[in-house]
Design a protein around this nucleic acid. Sequence first.
DNA 1: ACTCTTAACTTGTTATAACAAGTGAGCTTA
DNA 2: TAAGCTCACTTGTTATAACAAGTTAAGAGT
Lengths: 240, 240
Amino acid sequence: MATPLHITISEKLRHQIELGQYQAGDRLPSEHQLMETFSVSRITARQAVANLVSQGLVIAYRGKGVFVTPQKKVTYSLSSPLVFLEQDMTRQGVAFSFENLAFEVVPAPAEVAAAMQISQPSEVYLQKKLLRMDGAAGAVDISYLMADLGQRFAPQLKYQMTFPTLAQNDIPIDRLDGLIECTHADYDLSGYLEVPLGHALMVYRYTAYSSDQQPVLHGATISRADRFCYSLSTRSSGVT
Amino acid sequence: MATPLHITISEKLRHQIELGQYQAGDRLPSEHQLMETFSVSRITARQAVANLVSQGLVIAYRGKGVFVTPQKKVTYSLSSPLVFLEQDMTRQGVAFSFENLAFEVVPAPAEVAAAMQISQPSEVYLQKKLLRMDGAAGAVDISYLMADLGQRFAPQLKYQMTFPTLAQNDIPIDRLDGLIECTHADYDLSGYLEVPLGHALMVYRYTAYSSDQQPVLHGATISRADRFCYSLSTRSSGVT
DNA sequence: ACTCTTAACTTGTTATAACAAGTGAGCTTA
DNA sequence: TAAGCTCACTTGTTATAACAAGTTAAGAGT
């Protein structure tokens, strides 16, 4: 099995929580019970629970157990085919924020490489974010980011994008806070894909320039939301 | 020892990083080296590194090692004795965001209980946040929050506070996104303390009311920033 | 009835051990 | 010289074990 056991277990638990099998305030099975249920060691069971804790789905109390945190459903309508999730939600009175769950370098999955039109095998950044709406864990966003991997470290910076295809006036916005820094980036919505289970997949390519007009990034980003707790409008929609 | 070993080790490493002993891009000692240096098992060494990873200070690459992420110094001036950090920074063109690192229930430390004027022993919420400025990990904020602990679970919501002591017009702002929900909260700056090493400690008390005018929280919050990467102005200053 | 103690159960910490998987330097081989 | 392989080193995963520390309920004692 390529995927670690603790991932498999935490995903099963996460699924059960989403199905309502465990509701807010309910106690999850104890580590000992998980050990027997999945026939794993306590370390693996602990790691599975830790995954859920880091995602804000549960809180662990020593001596008592692990309990499901309250989730919140947010109804939200999109203002444009492009998803300015944070701006739109804020404008509609929903407090939007996100937390970085993981940022790593991984080999590009086939579908990602195809969407990005890059040669396989190649490496991409993988960023997982926990989206919060009104403070409640709303969705886990998974973004693949193609970038120059010559420099080894994640540039924890910012960038501004403009959207020439959208309007007569380019719309500069701050996006993907904490990922890439540059003063300008050409934006091109190269594709939009639907994936199973109502998940949305958005692809866009861009070129980013540094402050001295040097192109520093020829890249593409593909985003997909895993756990939708907000409803999408009738127009075309992506995420993040 | 009350504090776990892995905390002690990760704090030492964090200190060394802040001193510049390990700079951006540098490789941290390997797990094996940490084992020998601190005479601990690999689990403890791993846990110490994991703490730093979750704080965004380092990134681990399998087969290569653990590397320090680039940090960013931000110069920032406060607009008022109260610290509307997010608003002020945003206004000055600094992208401000934070990530929740931990949210737990702990017994109130003596200084916290004293500042909050609550009877000891008592429990308080402890929230640790990673503050990001322009996406770079800027500071770790530690907040103690006194609240009604009858309900066991962290209410991951939002609230609005007004500041009657500040101006003729109450200033409603969204603060502590993701912590408490209510429509109104009386605010009272009950004290301001300086702590060693240039760290700021701010205490305030408030009463929060739910939408049906029921008081749901009689509490106090004490905040302290651990890692200052931004400079404070000459006026009195707190954080978060 | 009430208080205290105990026992069972929970998560947190730590140790030892082994294997898997990815990286990179150095050596071997063609 | 250049390609390929091997080996040492790295982090990731998993198992077994033990103790610490906090919670809760049952039971003993007053």
